[in-house]
Amino acid sequence: MQRKKEFITEEIKELINEVARVTASMAYIENAGGQINYFRAMESLLYNYKKLETLVADEEEYTKVELKERSKSIVVFSPSAGGERKTRDEVLEEMEKQRAILYQRTKARFDEVDRVVQLFKDRKEFHVIRMYYFGEDAKGNQREAGAPQYTWEDIASELSEMGLIRDAKSARRWRNKIVNDMAVCLFGKPAAVGVGTYRKKQEE
Score class of each variant (00 low, 15 high):
M1K: 11
E6T: 10
I8E: 13
E11M: 13
K13D: 12
K13F: 10
E14H: 09
L15S: 04
I16L: 09
A20H: 07
R21I: 08
R21N: 11
A24E: 12
A24R: 13
M26D: 15
A27K: 14
A27R: 15
I29Y: 10
E30T: 05
E30D: 14
A32C: 09
I36M: 08
N37R: 03
S44D: 11
L45E: 04
L46D: 04
Y47N: 10
T54I: 09
A57F: 02
A57G: 07
E60Q: 13
Y62K: 05
T63R: 14
V65T: 07
I74S: 11
V76L: 11
F77P: 02
P79A: 06
A81H: 11
G82N: 05
G82I: 01
G82L: 03
G83E: 04
K86H: 14
T87K: 09
R88D: 07
D89N: 11
L92F: 02
M95W: 00
E96C: 09
K97N: 11
R99P: 02
I101E: 14
I101L: 15
Q104G: 05
A108V: 01
R109D: 14
R109W: 12
V113R: 03
V116G: 05
F120D: 02
D122A: 06
D122S: 13
F126P: 04
H127F: 07
H127M: 02
V128G: 08
V128C: 05
R130I: 00
M131K: 01
Y132L: 08
G135K: 07
E136M: 14
A138V: 10
A138H: 07
A138N: 04
K139C: 08
G140P: 02
Q142M: 12
G146Q: 03
P148W: 02
P148E: 11
Q149G: 12
Q149M: 11
W152D: 05
A156P: 00
S157W: 11
L159V: 03
L159T: 02
L159N: 05
I165W: 01
R166C: 02
R166V: 06
S170Y: 03
A171F: 00
R173E: 10
R175F: 00
R175T: 01
N176Q: 13
N176K: 12
V179C: 05
G188C: 03
K189E: 14
K189M: 12
A192E: 12
G196E: 06
T197L: 13
T197G: 08
R199Y: 07
K200A: 13
